[in-house]
Design a protein around this nucleic acid. Structure first.
Length: 276
DNA sequence: GGTGCGATCGCCT
DNA sequence: GGCGATCGCACCG
């Protein structure tokens, strides 16, 4: 058939049979300004050719939520360690009519102020008393994108330590795919703190977003659209397809097989139409 | 693999 | 005073 095989995920090769990370992935801690950047196009002249700037975030919420997929979130710790994860799952919160959004009805509070700030502003809020979630504001009054899951790309051992710090002593060691497969898990694994609220993802020195030189765009057929998680109480807004994830990716927090079949059918149909 | 439930506290009404 | 854009664990199959 015409199905495309995923080839961009480094995760399956990054784990040995018992889930331990391979040594090669440690490269990102120190080599990011040499190897990775040098084989990029010579036409890039800025100091950091892969970092996404202000203009990237100036997109409507749904567009930005999809555009985040495949991009790399980077967190630089105070000791210089750079934690990297590819975004594989997002949700759009539109504000205004979107009843599930903290900014529904244009409601603006001390907590959600970042949602109303310029596109690219980070919105970090605490939930259930013990967790955090990270959003990024988009175009649109009060609109923001929730980052739900990442594929760990580097320094998995550090992420594992950060996650283990909040788990029972003696708990089973987490597999790479379990480090960032949920909105609060990724905040723990990347040490995203409450104080990151209202910072600018386009200019901050401790957290930023990069394009992946090896995967500039994600094909539309690889993006699954489905309902958001944890918003069941918000009527019709609970079922709108405002969650987006990379098809078949092992780091997605909640799969929806029906939605996967739907988008698969659509992309197959499109391909057949193109051919015939 | 899936399901059910308790934890825990800031935020908003 | 009630609830939540979640998670981990116990338990079941």
């Amino acid at each position: 058939m015409t199905t495309r095989k995923r080839k961009n995920s480094s995760l399956p090769q990054s784990e040995s049979a018992d889930g331990e990370p391979l040594k090669r992935l440690i490269r990102c801690q120190s080599d990011t300004n040499s190897a990775d950047h040098h084989h990029l196009s010579p036409y890039f002249s800025t100091k950091d050719p892969v970092r996404l700037s202000d203009s990237f975030f100036h997109q409507p919420c749904i567009d930005l939520a999809k555009a985040f997929l495949g991009k790399v979130l980077v967190r630089k710790l105070t000791d210089g360690t750079e934690l990297r994860g590819r975004v594989v799952e997002t949700e759009a919160y539109l504000g205004g009519e979107d009843k599930a959004s903290h900014s529904a009805g244009g409601k603006r509070t001390e907590r959600n102020t970042a949602m109303f700030m310029k596109p690219g502003t980070i919105y970090v809020y605490p939930i259930y008393g013990i967790y955090l979630c990270m959003n990024v504001s988009s175009q649109g009054e009060g609109a923001a994108v929730l980052l739900r899951s990442l594929e760990p790309l580097s320094s998995q051992d550090v992420m594992r330590d950060l996650r283990a710090a909040k788990r029972k002593v003696g708990a089973k060691s987490l597999k790479d795919r379990e480090l960032c497969n949920g909105p609060s898990k990724l905040c723990q694994a990347l040490d995203i703190q409450r104080c990151f609220d209202r910072r600018d993802l386009a200019t901050d020195t401790e957290v930023w977003l990069e394009r992946d030189p090896e995967q500039e765009t994600v094909p539309a057929g690889e993006v699954v659209s489905t309902h958001r998680i944890g918003v069941e109480s918000h009527g019709e807004w609970a079922t709108k397809p405002l969650r987006f994830y990379l098809r078949g990716h092992p780091c997605v927090s909640v799969l929806n097989r029906d939605a996967e079949r739907q988008t698969h059918l659509h992309s197959s149909t499109e391909m057949e139409n193109t051919v015939s």
